[in-house]
Design a protein around this nucleic acid. Structure first.
Lengths: 221, 221
DNA sequence: CCAAAAGTGTTAATCTTACACCCATGA
DNA sequence: TCATGGGTGTAAGATTAACACTTTTGG
């Protein structure tokens, strides 16, 4: 009768950052069997008394030393894994971080690191699929909500924002059109300061206007 | 150590139909404690050996007598419920059906029925929130994917399709513009037959072109 | 002074919206 | 013949897409 109360729930998180003009995801070496040493997404078993949000916090704290980053639920993956101690359901989340702003401290124990996303990433379980799922979700979300606040430093140039969009959507933009489009959305504010040391002309710096960023939502149909 | 393998996973499904020009959702009377007799979404505990898809099928078979209807995963709700026998995580799905086409046979045991969605619906647990979550998800999905194949009879008029869109998106359309817009999307085919008995002029009947319906996807950004 | 990166406007084409009347049919 | 519901086109306005040169600055 209570057989059904015999399932484990794991929570895994795709933590993305935008670093060196690339989208990267946090991976760790698995600390115990099965697949000990294999490359996986950070994850952890849910304790019966915890909420999903609490496990998320623990996973974040453990692996990047900051539990207060933006995460959003992705999906539950219910394939019947053959885990030695029984049935596991994995509930996945994705998160977006900025290495400096979020004061990321990578866990050395399990060799936590950000890797760029390509064929060679190759995680165990179906964790590659989860990354794929997350990437698509973010792409879709970008169509009606702004992106960047959680990934960029608090001050950034228009070209940096364009690079981010270009990278996450996998396509090139026309500088002039991108600029106009983003500025029309009206969630940026130009600040008086101007770019750090760099070759060439100095760029205008922008910040997100927190309220407008939060409330921006494009209508469809 | 194995304490974490002591969680129950329930699967609940929001099954929507479009009936009498209204969006309705399947609700049942809860068959056991807690809240025995309360109005809930159809749901069931996951057995350790089952996949999520298998429980979905069981829930569907039991409540509407047809396990082969379109469902899609919504979200895992992980609030720490106080369930007498332990911790439960609910993973919710939504499904779309047509009463005739899908040969819906409502389960009489638990008084399964479709009810229209308004303030008075009032389900136990957070099942109202799940319906809300599902409604929003469908609305968003409609912005880039077609809707109707699973809800309408296989042949339908343009005005019926407009009514469905109007109902699910909660807004009115201009007949001419709606028609043009849908036809441009090019997933409908006009068939030679003409509408059933009705007052007034007979309407052209349409069907969805399965391939085009499936592949239609509007680009954003 | 020149290489590097930032910034800027206009036009044509496309898409969206608003809008009102005629058509076919059954009662 | 008339009430009912089905069907149709156009023009103005808004949005998007394509396009290349000038500016600023540090080396």
């Amino acid at each position: 009768m209570k057989e059904y109360l015999n399932i484990g729930v794991s929570v895994s998180i795709c933590i993305f950052c935008y670093d060196e003009d690339q989208k990267k995801v946090l991976v760790v070496d698995k600390e115990n069997d099965p697949f000990k040493g294999g490359k996986v997404l950070p994850h952890q078993m849910l304790q019966p008394k915890q909420s999903l949000e609490e496990v998320c916090s623990e996973v974040l704290e453990k692996n990047i030393g900051n539990k207060d980053v933006y995460v959003e639920q992705l999906n539950a993956f219910g394939k019947v894994y053959r885990h030695p101690s029984g049935r596991i359901i994995d509930i996945s989340f994705y998160g977006l971080v900025n290495l400096e702003k979020d004061k990321i401290k990578l866990n050395k124990e399990n060799n936590a690191r950000f890797e760029k996303i390509d064929k060679s990433l190759d995680l165990v379980f179906d964790h590659d699929d989860i990354i794929d799922f997350a990437s698509k979700r973010i792409k879709r979300r970008m169509k009606y909500r702004p992106l960047g606040k959680n990934l960029l430093p608090s001050q950034f140039t228009m070209n940096e924002l364009e690079g981010l969009y270009s990278c996450f959507l996998g396509k090139q933009f026309d500088k002039r059109n991108f600029r106009r489009r983003i500025l029309e959305m009206d969630f940026l504010k130009e600040i008086t300061k101007v770019q750090r040391n760099t070759r060439g002309r100095k760029a205008i710096l922008y910040e997100f206007d927190p309220k407008k960023y939060k409330n921006y939502s494009k209508a469809g149909f």
